[in-house]
Design a protein around this nucleic acid. Structure first.
Length: 501
RNA sequence: GGCGACGUCGCCAAGUGGCAAGGCAGAGGCCUGCAAAGCCUUUAUCCCCGGUUCGAAUCCGGGCGUCGCCUCCA
């Protein structure tokens, strides 16, 4: 079975064939580090993290490059506002970006080049473009001439004349064409600058992706990713620069993610309607945030809200419940023997993991259809839940091996999506408030939180056997107020923590 | 104004020519002392109008609506 991807350049799904069998060279535009990233940025990085993970799962050796734009107008503006050096601002938000990505469970790139560490190559490419007649110098600035590249517009499906007729004013008389863009900008006093043949200055934004991707991956590389708002002009300009400079095709497959919206409107820093990733992660776990985003295809717009995050919390609990329930049943002998499973039920349990895996791969092979892939996992979840409900792990744990395969498959497939199965067992994480509770309900006088909870559960068990529901519910309600849920299972009471009240 | 997406159950969302996945919410039932979790059952003539086809949510044409890009943006 082949993987098919939607290529923005050809506007259709195509079979994915890397230039070198078994190896994928992939580049994703990284952030400009002038602020914390918002969840719209995070969605894009998450999308390509999942694509990378899936390609790896399918046996490819993925070389994943993502740049960091650490010199830029916005960084300079921010530094001026705060009376700091631009490099200081960039360094701070580079670290913030990396730790936010770690927290979201996004794998680190194979290589993460910085613009400021690639200046020589940028000067070199700019020089080459001038030599070849694709760029010109004006007062220390260097501009790319879009009219010199006949294929300009092929990615975004536009032509230069259409663009100009609708374009809003750009009256830089020094440019030969309004659409020409800067490869090199001369430095104003106080701005970061490097020495070039055209004077002191710094590189233009579009140039760095062309340079860093070629340097790390060579042309023609396989996948270039980014959000759809980068198609024009950023990616169009990258193509123009790289292909004009080298004569080689730049990229085989262009993949673009849909934008995240709030109240039907694009989330962006310029609109000011953004939520910072790190703020969301304070309130919701990384797997929940990932799950929410993966429930929508990566190319579709995604409306973001806390209501939807709360729904994702429930969906996540549903996904991990069979794994938790199986582990619990394995560790705790059931006091009630459940009916034996029939041969056909056992057969269904045995068949389910492979069926789920097949459906998962089929969905993901089709342009990374994560929503379909999740449906395959949910189907497996239902089979495992149903089996555990009716038969448990069986006397002498005779169904345990088959259940383990199913449980492991759930965790493995979620893992391919980077959705971790977090332990919600609350061992040794009880707050000190449980001590007071244990004193009141169980006469516990010690200071060990675990022992206190054990005493509470024991007292509740006694109360229940005496049909003293008030006392039993007092224990349950008391723990609930602290965020812990008691569930009575055939193997006894289980306590787990819920991150929502 | 130009270019491009999209419109599927109360909400979210797969499916792109052959019996309409999945999640959340709701209803009924089972289980429970009551819960929680879980299981079972249940909820869609796929925005509208034409056309192509044996057959259309899916293809084509026309409406209406929403969004994005055309300026920095993930």
């Amino acid at each position: 079975m082949a993987i098919r991807v939607y290529n923005t350049l050809t506007r259709c799904k195509q079979e994915f064939v890397p230039r070198e069998p078994g190896v994928v060279a992939m580049y994703v535009c990284g952030p400009t580090v002038y602020n914390h990233i918002h969840i719209g940025n995070a969605r894009t990085f998450l999308t390509f993290d999942v694509i990378r993970r899936y390609l790896t799962f399918r046996g490819f050796d993925v070389r994943f490059v993502q740049n960091i734009t650490d010199v830029d107008d916005k960084i300079i503006a921010r530094a001026n506002e705060e009376g700091r050096q631009p490099a200081e601002v960039a360094a701070e938000y580079t670290l913030a970006f990396q730790s936010a990505m770690d927290a979201l469970g996004v794998l680190r790139p194979t290589v993460q080049p910085k613009a400021t560490e690639t200046i020589d190559d940028m000067i070199e490419m700019t020089g080459r473009l001038i030599e070849r007649g694709h760029a010109y110098v004006v007062d220390g600035d260097v501009y790319f001439s879009v009219r010199s590249f006949p294929e300009y517009g092929k990615l975004s499906g536009r032509n230069i004349d259409d663009l100009e007729s609708g374009a809003r004013v750009d009256v830089d008389e020094r440019k030969r064409d309004p659409l020409d863009f800067a490869l090199w900008k001369s430095a104003k006093p106080g701005e970061p600058h490097w020495t070039s043949p055209w004077g002191e200055g710094r590189p233009g934004w579009h140039l760095e992706c062309s340079v860093m991707s070629e340097r790390e991956l060579g042309l023609t590389f396989d996948i270039h990713g980014g959000a759809s708002d980068l198609i024009f002009p950023h990616h169009e300009n990258e193509i123009a620069q790289s292909e004009a400079a080298t004569g080689e095709p730049f990229v085989r497959y262009w993949l673009h993610g849909g934008l995240l919206q709030v109240n039907q409107e694009k989330m962006s820093k310029s609109l000011g309607n953004f939520l910072l990733l790190r703020d969301v992660l304070e309130r919701y776990s990384a797997p929940v945030v990932r799950l929410l985003m993966l429930q929508t295809h990566y190319r579709s717009p995604l409306d973001f809200s806390t209501e939807r995050l709360d729904e994702a919390v429930r969906a996540y609990e549903r996904l991990v419940t069979p794994v938790r329930n199986f582990n619990w049943a394995k560790r705790n002998r059931a006091v009630v023997e459940l009916p034996e499973a029939t041969a056909s039920v056992i057969e269904a349990l045995e068949a389910a993991p492979a069926a789920a895996r097949e459906a998962f791969v089929e969905a993901m092979d089709d342009d990374f259809n994560t929503a379909g892939a999740l449906a395959a996992i949910f189907d497996l979840v239902r089979v495992v839940n149903g089996f555990l409900e009716s038969h448990g792990i069986g006397g002498n744990a005779r169904y345990a091996a088959r259940l383990e395969v199913a449980s492991d498959t759930i965790a493995e497939l979620l893992g391919v999506l980077g959705v971790a199965v977090l332990s919600q067992e609350s061992d040794s994480q009880y707050p000190s408030e449980v001590l007071g509770l244990a004193r009141d309900f169980a006469g516990y006088e010690g200071s060990d939180a675990n022992a206190a909870v054990d005493a509470l559960l024991a007292a509740r068990a006694v109360a229940r056997s005496e049909r003293n529901w008030a006392a039993a519910d007092g224990v349950r309600d008391g723990l609930a107020a602290l965020g812990f849920v008691i569930e009575d299972t055939p193997s006894g009471a289980r306590v787990s923590y819920r991150d929502r009240g």
